[in-house]
Write a protein that binds this DNA or RNA. Structure first.
Length: 560
RNA sequence: UGGUCCAUGGUGUAAUUGGUAACACACCGGUUUUUGGUACCGACAUUCAAGGUUCGAGUCCUUGUGGACCAACCA
């Protein structure tokens, strides 16, 4: 990562400004505050890299805080998954904290607010309260319970906590201003009754604090100096500050909320609700399905933490609306994998090729370079024999000279092997080519140094020896949605755009060196793309995921 | 009809805080190559619009236009 000459984003400018106006650098503290109601996705990666990146940049602590104030949606499974993903991304948090750690403190503070006449118990239904709120262009009206006495409020609130009421019977509201132009300031709810066990506090509580009442106070309790969230919380800032006003003391750091635009990505959705829907309706196999934009899905698909971090840094942070093109993500993973992935040969769409002048039954083990860009990567042996598979699309009976691959009468080099010449082919009744016959030049062996071996032929093909190849399951993924912005249509549901062909499972033939490959090992199938070993692999059958294809200028040429 | 925020090439960001538009991706063209990969070279915007302030404006002001967000006992 090039941390050096990078220009600052607006968040970093804010911090620099605070520092230059006297804020002590050692008081800087950040946090990443997910709600454990789903798995982390690529959008979170931006927030994670922002907050933890700031921690690294200023050498400041960063808390991992779970915003667990709604037991109806939250689960331990998600807590575990989130920790796993942040850790995998390569970041370490200073403290693992939970909003639920502060339930008692929050309660005590709420009691203070009541005593100060800043909060009251409302006993109306959700519907009535909503109606009284008015609209953005129309003032709200006060609740008839707004002027309950402090004593009455205290008693009611205490009884709410003790479990004397059913859900919905009472709520605690902050007493602010029902005519504010900011809807959130119209006496927002602080507590609601929820008779649901919490994944950490179990049944200790039956009243739960709302987000607004919790978040700023949690930041304050942890002495977080800068609290960054997405733009949809911009309106909440006024309330965040109001709540802080009720509890802060001068000697402590007063947290500052600032907002940045969430990242949108083309051809996918990043909303936990929608991702959950994909899982529940079994459009995908789970949160870690390789087609999912989740961190765990990307990891399973073969993405590296390094690539994701680079990607997040590349797209940066700003305040404007955006749709990040997937090609940027694909570039990041190719860039990383190109450096580290060992090259191997695999044929995914095979056609038989017979070398008629190669001795029957003979085999030889050729040297193959593991990574041409890495001098230390070394060589491995790949078996060669009379009968091989090559890709169907690498042969044509006839073709123009733009086609560098094999055609009748034409020559091509078999990667790491010999130069061959196609002589004839045989077809089945439907006219499909089922076998290609060719001859080889025995003196043209790669690396042999002979004059023949140095000859230049335009095309080079990958191949596998049929006798030695390992038949494997290969999972090819396409984008999950056919539309560029599936959830930006006012009149259509994003589920309408699900790509029915997002997964294709085929049998491919890989070179025998892959026999010992382990789960998550990643390779470049030369001339095809990057593939890793899926966790579904067994000793009997290897299962590969396609991570991403190689850049394919030939495909572009063909389209013209 | 109220309020808040935003507007730089196809995409995402930058611009020493008023000093003459930069980086990456994509696209197009080329060189190299035993991966049509990689690497390398080149081309590609005068900053939503109109006024204004200024020697000088992407940066400041005004007015428009366009977009996002705000009325969950969600976060």
């Amino acid at each position: 990562m090039s941390e050096e000459e990078k220009s600052l984003n607006f968040i970093e400018h804010i911090i620099e400004d605070d520092l230059s106006s006297g804020f002590p650098k050692d008081k800087l503290r950040f946090r990443f505050p997910p709600e454990p109601n789903g798995y982390l996705h690529i959008g979170h990666a931006s927030s994670i890299c922002l907050n933890f990146g700031l921690g690294l940049r200023y050498n400041s602590p960063v808390n991992l805080r779970f915003d667990d104030t709604n037991p109806a949606k939250e689960e331990q499974e998600y807590v575990d998954a989130i920790k796993r993903d942040v850790d995998w991304l390569g970041f370490s948090w200073d403290a693992e904290v939970y909003a639920s750690d502060y339930f008692q403190q929050l309660y005590d503070w709420a009691v203070e607010l009541i005593k100060n006449g800043k909060a009251y118990v409302d006993s109306q239904s959700a519907e009535v309260i909503a109606t009284q709120k008015g609209t953005p262009t129309q003032d709200g009206e006060n609740s008839p319970f707004r002027d309950r006495t402090v004593e009455e409020n205290l008693a009611l609130f205490s009884e709410m906590k003790e479990g004397k009421y059913k859900e919905g019977e009472h709520v605690l509201r902050a007493k602010i201003d029902m005519t504010s132009s900011n809807m959130l300031m119209r006496d927002p709810l602080m507590y609601r009754i929820l008779h649901k066990p919490h994944h950490r506090t179990n049944t200790d509580w039956c009243i739960y604090p709302m987000y607004d009442w919790t978040h700023g106070e949690s930041d304050y309790l942890e002495q977080v100096s800068h609290s960054f969230c997405t733009l949809e919380f911009a309106m909440h800032r006024e309330l965040y500050d109001w709540f802080l006003d009720q509890v802060t003391v001068d000697t402590k750091v007063r947290p500052k909320q600032r907002e940045f635009a969430r990242r949108n990505f083309s051809h996918t959705v990043v909303s936990k609700r929608k991702l959950l829907q994909l899982v529940e309706e079994e459009v995908v196999t789970g949160w870690d399905d390789p087609r999912m934009p989740t961190i765990s899905g990307l990891r399973r698909k073969g993405y590296t933490a390094n690539a994701i971090r680079n990607f997040a840094n590349t797209i940066g942070i700003a305040k404007r609306e955006n749709v990040v093109d997937v090609s940027l993500l694909e570039f990041s993973i190719r860039e990383d994998l190109n450096k580290i992935a060992p090259r191997v040969m695999a044929v995914l769409n095979p056609v038989k090729l017979v070398i008629t002048n190669y001795p029957d039954g003979e085999e030889e083990w050729l040297d193959a370079e593991n990574n041409p860009g890495d001098d230390n990567a070394g060589y491995r042996k790949v078996p060669f024999s009379k009968e091989l598979y090559i890709e169907k699309e690498d042969f044509k009976e006839e073709a123009n000279k733009k086609f560098f691959r094999l055609k009748l009468g034409g020559e091509v080099r078999l990667k790491n092997g010999y130069i061959i010449k196609a002589e004839s082919c045989t077809k089945d009744a439907e006219g499909n080519i089922i076998e290609i016959q060719c001859t080889y030049d025995p003196k043209s062996k790669s690396g042999s140094g002979t004059e023949e071996s140095l000859r230049k032929v335009k095309g080079t093909l990958h191949w596998v020896s049929i006798k030695h190849a390992i038949a494997s399951e290969v999972r090819l993924y396409d984008r999950l949605f056919n539309d560029e912005t599936p959830d930006q249509h006012k009149d259509k549901d994003f589920m309408e755009f699900v790509n029915p062909e997002s997964l294709k499972v085929i049998t491919g033939f890989v070179e025998p060196s892959l026999k010992t490959a382990k789960v998550e090992d990643i390779f470049q199938f030369q001339r095809i793309g990057y593939f890793n070993i899926d966790k579904d692999s067994t000793a009997e059958k290897l299962v590969f995921n396609k991570t991403v294809g190689l850049r394919d200028t030939w495909a572009k040429l063909q389209q013209k």
